Simulated assay, not measured.
Amino acid sequence: MKKTASLMLMLVLSISLVLSACGVDKKNNNGGSQGGSEPEVVSDESGKDFKIGMVTDVGGVNDRSFNQSAWEALQRLSKETSAETKFLESKGEADMEPNLNNFVREGYSLTWGIGFLFTDAILKVANENPDAKLAVIDAVVDAPNVASVTFAEHEGSFLVGVVAGLMSESKKIGFVGGMEIPVIKRFEAGFVAGVKAANPDANVKVVYTGTFDKPDQGKSAAATLYNDGYDIVFHAAGGTGNGVFNEAIERKKNGEKVWVIGVDKDQSLEFGDEVTLTSMMKGVDAAVHKISKDLIDGNWTSGTQELGLKDDAVGLPETSKKNVPEDVLKKVDEFKAKIISGEIVVPGE
């Protein structure tokens, strides 16, 4: 019996040593495990004493767009610095303030609100917690403990508008927006201006679904546009825009020649270049990573940063070359140079 007990004890100790050697990565979580991903060696441990939280808007963390880009940036930061990162999803606007407060109460080093809809919630939480640090994307919050990041979406949207204006065979181009808020209106205004600059005879039809988290409504809006002969649709609708892609994919399978212009990130990587003409990329990931890393490095500052074409914060991805002809891309570069120089001022509303 003593021999058997000794063997069992040795076995338990051996298993414990193996599990310890494997090392589960707890630094990068969303309230659960990342599931199936292999642990990666971190670059350093400069962020080991930092906790950075992120609250999504109603589109959710897997919107394949805006929120996902921000979360991917924090995941990368966690791997690079050992900082602890976590997100909370907002199912509605009523969840935003409680979710922000959740991170503040837990003593997080920095709490992000992703999207214009956080404007009021961030301001309230910041004023009530002056020692907390917060940051927000697509909104300007005037508080000494808030870093605000906005983008010149209208400038990047102008460029994809140029692509659509030059490549539409029907000269009928659609725009599907989510909620009709200032940031989405900037997408619309820039896009329409770009289409008209490249092709004054083109017609642009604008549709708003009123939501960022309903792919079925995006699909329905796209179906109506494609049925009416609109062959290129640009969406700025978050998760709702996934439905635009779903409709285009179905039609492509049936032999129809329709295109989608993606938003916020290179959506050809998600939906394929068979339907993605190009995307209006927005450096949400770069901004979230930079400001969060600045905090770890001791360089964090409050205030507002606006990022545009001159900062390479908006524009087209390299994958555009797959579907956009060289002469069209050359025209895009010409317009880009004129916008940066100030020769062209893109309307923002």
Score class of each variant (00 low, 15 high):
D142W: 00
N145C: 03
A126V: 01
D131R: 01
A121C: 04
T119S: 11
A132L: 02
A135L: 09
V140S: 12
I114T: 05
A147L: 12
V125R: 07
F116N: 06
G113N: 03
A143M: 07
N145P: 03
T119V: 12
V136L: 08
A126S: 06
A132Q: 02
N127Q: 15
V125C: 07
E128R: 09
V160C: 11
V160T: 15
V141T: 09
L134G: 10
T119L: 13
A143W: 09
T119C: 01
G115C: 05
I122C: 10
I122Y: 15
P144I: 08
V160P: 05
F158M: 05
V136G: 02
A126R: 02
T150L: 14
K124Q: 13
V140E: 15
T119Q: 12
V146C: 03
F118P: 07
V146E: 04
F158V: 03
A152S: 10
A135C: 08
E128N: 14
P130V: 00
A132R: 02
F151C: 05
E155D: 12
L123H: 10
L117K: 11
E128T: 07
V160S: 07
N127A: 14
D142C: 00
A143D: 13
P130W: 00
V141A: 06
V140W: 06
L117H: 02
A139C: 09
T150F: 07
H154W: 14
N127F: 00
S157H: 03
D120P: 07
N127D: 14
D138N: 13
W112G: 01
A126L: 01
V140A: 14
I137F: 13
A139G: 04
I137Q: 06
I122T: 14
T111Q: 03
V146Y: 05
A126N: 03
G113R: 01
T119A: 12
L159Q: 08
I122Q: 10
A147Y: 15
